[in-house]
Each structure stands twice: as structure tokens, then as C-alpha cells.
Design a protein around this nucleic acid. Structure first.
Lengths: 344, 344
DNA sequence: AAGGGGGTTTGAAATGTTTCATACGCCGTG
DNA sequence: CACGGCGTATGAAACATTTCAAACCCCCTT
């Protein structure tokens, strides 16, 4: 430490008796400097407690060493698993990952993205409140690598990585139909969330294809995809007289399903005998629920990892082409829908 | 956009017909520049799509606008709630929050912290793998504001914010004793985690004070604080013949408790009649479990917010003094310990 | 008409790196 | 002995901003 100020390359150079350039070389191309001087410089660094100033490095070099992920909802473990996948890919590329959380608020999201642009991050991964937002198109147009995660972006302007949500809705409801259910609730909302729209749409599709009467697929809207909303939907469901009550529910995500499960069990319904439940995402807590939850699995980490790879390709490969990756979801059957499921 | 390059203040200045300094003034002290020029400059910025380069700003100004939180375990929702509290405080102070995740690996933690130092963040909040780690003391010694979250740091070198874990262990076991339990399992590990040691210690303390025989407080070690480990502990517990089996379990965190709950219910034990369960942290999923979980609540968001305030104080207040804040945990009784708990 | 003063604007220095052309030192070769 | 070449080291320029003393302009006072 040099009189309070944190030491700079200049201080290191002086203390080691070499020039600025040499110190820089020690950090960036150690092979060109002779072992003896390198040794001397490294000792000086250690002695002074030198820490390279990343701002200055980045300013001059013009390239940053961070990726960023703006997640939609920090209370949903799903997004943390995605983030974990991104983190692993970032680690491989020797990059740092900057995680932000918009909490489903569009204006907060934009503040975060703005800050990230100012930081000149290498690329932005984002699960946006609204993938059609004009400002997103704008930054992509400028050449900042942007990858939409868990949604598909508008008009091929960006890469995106998502699961086929329509298909997910289909397999969930198909599974219920296979178990003999002919009156099914579809729980989810608000419609402004694209994932919800598509999952519901998939449910309707297969229902029609199976030739079941549209009125027996009952939509139970919710205000958000949270445990609390799931509980509230559960109340409404349990309140329906037994003869007219759906015998199964497909929830737009696992948080809803968990809330619904808790509430309906509390109300005395047996799961799955009186009410079968399917969730979506297959978060870790789904398997850990007291009645393990059947769910539509998204390859969460894989989603994140693939997104990171796309953003890196866009950042480094001059003839990168935007692509929309779609993963195939998979049903994981557990005790909440089948009386004796295959082993966990 | 100026021929591919992203535009700089210089470009804005030229386009608006003013000097560099004026553009800077528009951004940093708008009150000194006349409305007419300000207007002109702002228009030029919008036209060119100018985005301030934060690296250059920070290099020159010497101050960054970010706080960072290095969390211990991204799979535990507890830490995300803490992060949320930090985020709110950061938002108030108009700072960005950089969230990293060490996943309980000491070397990854150190890489993260190193990067953060290079970025010259205003302060580092951290739930460290080991609060006694030498490198932490080292950076604190250099004057970087560091706050330990959910642990207390060594030798008053840093501020810290934590809950009284010993007390938490006491009230958990006291509650079980009040319900008449006289043979109790304490589930948790590894001992290398400070939180575990102290919670277990609290349990032993009160057990002794209540005059109960030490052998009837049975320690069930686990390799980590995860749902999977909770399940495995549950297997062992369920395997004990009913006459000698503990009638209650205190788990070192909610993840363990949730796994234990699931496993033991699956094995046919009734909760709480045959096995009462208490967790620790009171994460959101605790209340949402099919048998809502009694837990020792930590004020999670409050913890984060307080930590952020401490770090900001250290960063800005010249006569800051380190303090160790301790919050008092609180028992939240739910159905996993009492047959008819007070309203949820 | 000179002086003064307030409100704006300017220009240059400074921040800590990296980069790159150049210089240096040394050795072996012709 | 001069020369070329190689391996190292150097110094200055460049990066995009902020800051601050100085300059400028205009108007009011005396």
C-alpha cells in the first residue's frame, strides 16, 4: 500500500525497477518477459498488494469480462437453476456473471439493462417481462449480444432459448387424460405472461384433439405465478361441489401447484385420488413436496448453458447467425397424479 | 451510432456544437447548464444513441456505483431473500447490486471476491464458507468495506449481521420440550459450518438446562444442508424401532426439514403425531409444505437490508465503527409440531 | 465608459491500463 | 569487425470520462 492510495502499475514498476510496459506484460503476456524480471515484478506486486484496476483495463482494451443475466422472478427457484447453468458456462469461458433481478417489473428491468450497457458487458441474457419491448430491439440493433431466455424474441432479432411451452401444456393434459380424467382445471395467469398463454393453449389443443367437450376444461385464472396464488386457486377449487369439481388440475408452474396442493390437502381432499395435480418446471421442491409433484420438466441448467453459449458466439464469432433454440419438455410422473408411480 | 463505433462524449459534443465539458455537465450537474444547450445536448445524445461508458467514468471519478453480494448457496431460497433485502437498500442508494454465488466452494468464492476487488465495488457483502479465512481479513485491512452476512466475523475486523443461532437452537428445542417430547433428534451437518455448530449447541444447552438426559438428544449428522440429505436422514430415523425412535426432530435448516418431512411421511409416519419437526430459516416453502413446517424464523430481508446499510456507512462515513448486529430469531409454530396450531 | 459580477462554457489535465513501434543488448555469422 | 537477428524492455499514445481553473459574455452600476 502506498500512502493510502491503492497502488497502480506505476508503483509496481518503480518498486521493481522496471517500466510500466513490463508490468503490463507480466500480467498479459508473461511468456515475453524473462523469468528473472517476471519474478521481481511479481514479488513487487505481492508486496504492495497490487490489484489490477478493471475499469482502466476495460477502458483501454475495449473488452469486458462479464456476462449478465436479468432474471424475471427471484422468488422462483426455476430461474436460479437457469442462472446456475449460465454460471457454469461463464466459468468455462473465464467470465464473471452479473445476476440482476427485475422482480417482474418492467421499469426495474430497464434500469438494470441500462446499467449493464453502461458497463459494456459482453452480452446480456434476459428473461424479459415483455420480449416485444421496443428497447430490447433497440439494443440488439446496436450490436450488443442479447439472448432471450425462456421466451422467444420478436422477429428473429435475437437468439433465444426456450422450451416448447405449447407442447408442455399438451403433454401435461394428455397425461391427465390418460389417467382417465375428463374434467380438468387449468390454473394460471395473468394472460400477459407469454409462458402462461402458451401452456394454456397447448392444454386446449390436446383437449380438443382428444374430442373432449371444451366446457370440461375449466380455466382458473390467477394474478401471478406464486405459491400464495396457488393457495387461493385451491380454495376456489375446493369450494366447487364434488359432483361438478374437476378431478385434476394442470398448473402453469410449480409454485402454483405447490400452493394448490397444500390448500386442497388442507381442505381434506386426497391427492391424487380426489384431485390429481400437474405442475410445470420441475423445480427441486416439486419432488420434495409431501405428495411429490408430477411436473413438466424443463432442462433448466441446460437452458442456461445453451443461452450462454449463444451469447458468447454472438460476441466473438463474426458470422454469427441468430437462432431460436427450442428444447423439448418432458413429463415427470410422481405421486400427485398416479397412485403408484414409477420409482422416484 | 457513428460508423460502427459506439459514440462517445466527443461525438455528442461535436454533434451538438458544444465542448466536451458541457456534455459532461449535462450528465453530472444539469443545473449549471442553460436550458437551451442542455436541450440541444440531450437531443444529440438521443440521436446518436449515446451510452455513457461506466469504466471511463469510474476510472476518472474514482468511485463505483455497485455493491456486491457473494452468497453461499444458490439453491437455498434463504439467501435469495437476503439478497432481495440488499437489493432494496441498494436501490434506495441508487446503486446496482452484483450477485455472485460461491456454491459453498472456498476457491470459487475467492475468485469472485478477487474480481469484485478489481472492479472496485463500493463494498462487499458476503456469507463466506469460512469467516476466518485469511484473505478476508486481508481485504478488510486494506479498507475495502466488507460485511459478513449470517455469520459473525473474526476479531471485530468487519461489520457483521447475523441471527443469534445459539438462541435459535434453544427456542426450537424448548418448543419441542414444551410439547412434551423427551427424546429428540438433532439433524444437521457438517460441523464445519458455523451455523450448524451453534444451532446444535443451543439445542444441547437448553436440553441440559431442562434437566433432560443428554443421551436422549440424538445427533443425526448430515453431509450438507440440502433436501436430499434431509431425506437420507429421514430414512435413518424411520429405520429406528418405534420404541427407541425420537418423537421429534430439530433440523438445522428448512431444506433438511423438508426432505425429512417428505421421507418420513412417505415411510408412513404421521406428522406431528408420531414425529414432530422443526426447521430453521422459515423460507417460503416451509409454510407451503403439505404439512406446514414449524420453523425458527430469521428476518431474512431485514438481515440483507441491515447489512447493506452497514456497508454503505463504512463506505461513506469517515468515522464508521465496525459493529456486529445480532437479530433475535423467532419461533413460528405450524402444523408440523402442534396438532392444532394458531391460524397460519 | 470602465468596472464588476453572475451565469455559462471551455480546454486541458488527470485517471490506470494496454498496445505497439522502437530501442537495446547480446550473440553468432560472414 | 560489421551486420543481422532474436529476445527483452521501454515510452508514449490512446481509451472515455470528470474536474476545475480560467475565459467569456452580458448586463448592471457607478
Amino acid at each position: 500500500m502506498v500512502n493510502g492510495r491503492t497502488p497502480s502499475v506505476k508503483d509496481v514498476a518503480r518498486s521493481a525497477g522496471v517500466s510500466l510496459g513490463t508490468v503490463s506484460n507480466v500480467m498479459n503476456r508473461p511468456e515475453v518477459v524473462s523469468p528473472a524480471t517476471r519474478e521481481r515484478v511479481e514479488r513487487a506486486m505481492a508486496e504492495l498488494g497490487f490489484v489490477r484496476n478493471e475499469s482502466a483495463r476495460q477502458l483501454r482494451a475495449g473488452t469486458s469480462r462479464t456476462l449478465a443475466y436479468v432474471m424475471l422472478d427471484g422468488t422462483n427457484p426455476f430461474f436460479h437453476d437457469v442462472a446456475q447453468g449460465i454460471e457454469l458456462a461463464a466459468e468455462d469461458a473465464d467470465l464473471s456473471l452479473f445476476i440482476c433481478n427485475s422482480n417482474s417489473r418492467a421499469e426495474r428491468e430497464e434500469v438494470h439493462v441500462d446499467r449493464l450497457m453502461q458497463q459494456r458487458v459482453q452480452g446480456i441474457l434476459i428473461t424479459p417481462v415483455n420480449p416485444e419491448a421496443a428497447y430490447l430491439a433497440e439494443i440488439a440493433r446496436r450490436g450488443i449480444p442479447v439472448v432471450i431466455v425462456d421466451r422467444v424474441g420478436a422477429g428473429g432479432l435475437f437468439c433465444s432459448v426456450a422450451v416448447d411451452d405449447v407442447l408442455g401444456g399438451r403433454i401435461a393434459v394428455e397425461h391427465l387424460a390418460e389417467q382417465g380424467h375428463t374434467r380438468v382445471a387449468v390454473v394460471g395467469g395473468p394472460e400477459s405472461i407469454g409462458q402462461v398463454r402458451e401452456r394454456v393453449q397447448g392444454a386446449r389443443q390436446i383437449w380438443a384433439e382428444l374430442g373432449l367437450p371444451p366446457d370440461d376444461l375449466i380455466h382458473l385464472p390467477t394474478a401471478a405465478l406464486t405459491v400464495a396464488e396457488g393457495r387461493s386457486a385451491g380454495e376456489r377449487l375446493a369450494g366447487i361441489p364434488a359432483r361438478r369439481r374437476p378431478t385434476a388440475a394442470f398448473c402453469a408452474n410449480d409454485l402454483l401447484a405447490l400452493g394448490l396442493l397444500q390448500q386442497t390437502i388442507g381442505a381434506g381432499l386426497r391427492v391424487p385420488e380426489e384431485l390429481a395435480i400437474v405442475g410445470f418446471d420441475d423445480i427441486e421442491f416439486a419432488a420434495a413436496a409431501a405428495v411429490p409433484l408430477t411436473s413438466v420438466r424443463q432442462p433448466r441448467q441446460e437452458l442456461g448453458r445453451a443461452a450462454a453459449q449463444l451469447v458468447l458466439d454472438e460476441a466473438t464469432n463474426p458470422d454469427h447467425e441468430h437462432q431460436q433454440l427450442t428444447f423439448v419438455p418432458e413429463l415427470v410422473a410422481r405421486a400427485s397424479t398416479v397412485v403408484r408411480p414409477r420409482a422416484y
